[in-house]
Design a protein around this nucleic acid. Structure first.
Lengths: 326, 326
DNA sequence: TAACTTGACTTAAACGATTAAGCGCTTTAT
DNA sequence: ATAAAGCGCTTAATCGTTTAAGTCAAGTTA
């Protein structure tokens, strides 16, 4: 691997000159700059990132801490973020927490050791923000906002409202709610939006809080079994898939006997039967905003904390149909 | 951030002593070692990985180059690999190629710049192995073997055979094949195993080569429309999902009218309707073998090239049923 | 012509670690 | 008795960069 020293020796100049020629910082004659550039090309020189990092304190690496790659929402997000990051010359370390706080802790330690320039984090659950503060690099929370921190997330409340409005339009009156973990802002706002827009027009007959997973709690299964509601609204698509499975094994047809709605528009949603009526989160936009917020913060660490909210849209498919009032 | 120098100053010794105390390499009195350890604890010292890397040439980072996080097989694999890597103190850079050679090239460049200690790579398509050689760190190919390189993959041939045997047991005689991209060893062996075990007992009435995606080619759709086979065997689950969708829109019921089999056992396979009969790849084992092969190669770079093949198993679900010979 | 500026370099000191070599002393082996 | 080896530490070189400070000749100004 060629170094600055090799190039300098080749041209009979000092490494400083070569460095100046490449960074364009000092004053170097055009002739010399050309010679340096040519030699760089010829020797296939690539700057040693570690050495640069050591000197400048900038690693050009960021961390991406994700709750669970098994939830199809996150691979999509990770893909877009990695793409955007690479486009601006940032490499990304990925840590998958498998939804466990221990791994999250490990991940944060790792980011500290690697001295990343920034971290994009989707916190699992409501963690103490102390650990976050120990990380002395900029952090942007995605999808899981926490008060007092930079964050990018979808307009969950609007999503909830869209679902309620759609339900009303379809003529539904009675609904069961499979709400997500209420300690997360994300699940709380989805629920809040729905409940607000439903007020006085939809009767929420039952509600069960379940984790963001297709494995339903026993209580949720019982609720589904006993349900007389014409519509079940799940806090995300994964839960909706679980509900679909459960309803089917209870002998209830979706959507003929009961309609179903999800949230996220994960890739499966279009493929399962019936395809899922859901709220689409603009994942590419989330990724883009997250990265632009992070880079902004990297450039100006005193930037005031801000939150970017991206819009969502209703995706009508086959799992929710109009109710025939007989 | 505390450095060795801080600790040394605190104790009134040289940095070398502190370094020796921590690495356990030089000779240091037990008393001094204890004092160092205590001070490390007290100051919250964390070694600077960049500096270590610069001195030793070892970065304790590996690269993971993946074709597409949108294919659910890869997030699973990535999750396990990241987990195993972290357990042995390796951080992982992830690059998602989005199935494009350009990004793959970029990814390899990035690994070179980051000077990773090793790379785990699932090549998209059959790339020139020249680029691979330019990377002067150990490389292990996963899921997509290439001749002449260390690789870990499932026993595709056995998987193909299992599918054929199962088809025969179920009483099928006529079958349509949606085979994967034959420039990949992976798809070739799946096909080969199936064809071998089918020989003389199953009649392969038609065959279409399609990419590993749920988007079917027009030719494949025509083949499905015209098919009189009692069974369709897809090269992976993603293709099977696409076929399921297409069959359904053609008015053919699965499995009543036609049985369907996949390969991979991606998480959706159990959740879609009908749930998919398929071949399970032991992803955790793949990840484990890949990492152990890579670390072995990192320790002994002259290790001869080897391939590890992990066993697969048939998962019987609802998409393939016994044929009633009338 | 003396004094000052400028351009194009070089020198050398960092950054934070690792590690070979050396130092003055005591212990062991030949 | 003398050489060799070990002990616990220090000194100093090194990895590949960046960058403040210095040098020195040529050009500009008064």
């Amino acid at each position: 691997m060629a170094t600055l020293k090799d190039i300098a020796k080749e041209l009979g100049v000092s490494v400083a000159t070569v460095s100046y020629a490449l960074t364009g910082r000092g004053s170097v004659s055009p002739a010399m700059r050309d010679k340096v550039l040519a030699t760089v090309e010829r020797l296939g020189y690539q700057p040693n990132r570690k050495a640069q990092a050591m000197r400048t304190g900038i690693t050009r690496c960021i961390g991406l801490i994700i709750p669970d790659l098994t939830n199809p929402f996150f691979p999509q997000l990770a893909q877009k973020i990695e793409f955007e990051a690479r486009a601006v010359g940032l490499s990304v370390f990925v840590v998958d927490c498998q939804n466990q706080a221990v791994h999250e802790e490990e991940g944060l330690n790792l980011m500290e050791q690697q001295q990343v320039d920034g971290v994009i984090w989707c916190p699992t659950g409501n963690r103490s923000t102390q650990r976050l503060a120990r990380l002395r690099c900029p952090v942007v929370l995605v999808d899981r906002p926490l008060p007092g921190f930079d964050a990018v997330h979808s307009d969950y409340r609007a999503g909830g409202q869209l679902l309620a409005q759609h339900a009303i339009e379809l003529g539904h009156r009675t609904v069961g709610l499979l709400s997500g973990p209420q300690e997360t802002e994300s699940a709380r706002l989805r629920r809040a939006g729905f409940v607000e827009a439903a007020a006085g027009r939809l009767d929420i007959q039952w509600e069960e809080e379940v984790p963001f997973s297709s494995e339903l709690s026993p209580a949720a299964r019982q609720a589904l079994a006993a349900s007389k509601a014409s519509l079940v609204v799940a806090a995300n698509d994964l839960i909706a898939v679980g509900a679909l499975d459960e309803l089917r094994s209870l002998g209830k047809r979706v959507p003929e006997d009961v309609s179903l709605m999800g949230f996220d528009d994960i890739p499966w949603s279009a493929l399962i039967t019936p395809s899922l009526t859901t709220i689409r989160q603009p994942i590419a936009a989330l990724a883009h905003e997250a990265l632009s917020l992070l880079t902004a913060k990297m450039l100006d660490r005193n930037r005031p904390v801000s939150t970017r909210v991206v819009g969502v849209s209703l995706v009508e498919r086959n799992s929710a149909i109009a109710l025939n009032h007989g």
